[in-house]
């Protein structure tokens, strides 16, 4: 009997042993826990589900103005609004693990011990495929470091979480640093399974009439298409510095953008802000990748990972 050759290209990738049917997932904080976007498309079409950050205790979020538009981007200062781990385990996890796609839980805290406790609790839950460690969070108990932007802070946090984390551990790196490859190397040395990069850039917009920052929090995280070239550059650099997989994030709105990150060396990508201005951005990126592969005779998406990397002369 002759088997028919399937015309559909293979979009599946493996992130640290975790099989994803395609390399596209939402970025934390840009997709709730999927319930809103289930009204626009089938969530099970995604490679994985990455939800809003969970913090040690419920957080109401910031008062005042929380978002402001910028050229081809936006700033947000939501303040990690979330119902806390108890409500997450009771109300959210039972629903999302039924989807049958990998569920990644983003974890954020203010102190090292809180990271460790939360990581231990959430990583042991059935249906949690990975812990994405939000390292771009204020003050991880080091006093001098407002953000986890030094290799030492990254090393401390990841090393402390590694022994208690019973599933994949994926630190999410801040771009607000001088040399992101140093953060990446520290995370890898501390036992990270993969890296999500990047989180938002700290920015500010001033209301010139009120002579005050627009955001209630004064500063906010910048995201959207405007940051994409910087994010692609950082992924490219880190891909040359570590051997663990990279999940590329930063202004991805279309399949073309996703391809840039894959070619720079990312194994998978996250779509963030784009879901806000196009609720069907994620399925459109997946469909666009598939169409591009068919048009270009690419049978397996893994062929393009790192394809743009050129050896440095020497």
């Amino acid at each position: 009997m002759e088997l028919k050759q399937s015309a559909r290209p293979n979009l599946s990738v493996t992130v640290a042993g975790m099989e994803l049917k395609n390399p596209v997932m939402p970025a934390s904080g840009c997709f709730g826990w999927g319930e809103e976007y289930a009204r626009f498309f089938d969530l099970t079409d995604m490679g994985a589900l990455v939800g809003k950050a969970v913090t040690p205790r419920p957080r109401p979020g910031n008062a005042g103005v929380r978002i402001v538009e910028t050229p081809s981007g936006m700033l947000n200062a939501i303040g990690l609004q979330n119902p806390g781990p108890e409500a997450f385990l009771r109300d959210v996890l039972p629903r999302v693990r039924e989807l049958g796609i990998p569920v990644w839980v983003n974890v954020s805290a203010n102190a090292l011990q809180e990271y460790v406790d939360l990581c231990g609790l959430l990583s042991s839950q059935p249906g949690v495929s990975a812990i994405e460690l939000n390292l771009s969070c204020p003050n991880v108990g080091r006093g001098h470091a407002e953000f986890c932007v030094t290799p030492e802070a990254v090393m401390d946090t990841v090393s402390a979480c590694r022994p208690v984390c019973r599933t994949h551990l994926i630190p999410k790196l801040s771009p607000n640093t001088t040399d992101i490859t140093a953060l990446a190397r520290a995370a890898e040395a501390a036992g990270a399974d993969a890296l999500s990069m990047i989180n938002t850039f700290v920015g500010m917009v001033i209301d010139i009439d009120k002579r005050r920052p627009v955001l209630g929090n004064r500063t906010g995280g910048m995201s959207g298409p405007a940051v994409r070239p910087i994010a692609v550059r950082m992924v490219y650099e880190v891909a040359g510095a570590v051997s663990i997989p990279i999940i590329g994030i930063g202004g991805i709105s279309t399949w073309r953008d996703a391809l840039e990150f894959l070619m720079a060396g990312a194994t998978a990508v996250q779509v963030g802000t784009a879901s806000f201005f196009n609720p069907r951005a994620i399925p459109e990126v997946i469909q666009g990748l598939e169409t591009w592969m068919v048009d270009h005779g690419v049978a397996n998406i893994r062929e393009v990972i790192g394809a743009a990397r050129v050896p440095t002369g020497g």
């Binding site: 109401p60 979020g61 609004q81 802000t273 879901s275 806000f276």
Partner: peptide
Amino acid sequence: APMACGVGACLGCTVPRREGGF
């Protein structure tokens, strides 16, 4: 209120509730 998504995901358009939270 200023909104990014309009569907409940971005949490950008919140207002304070009398009973606390947003």
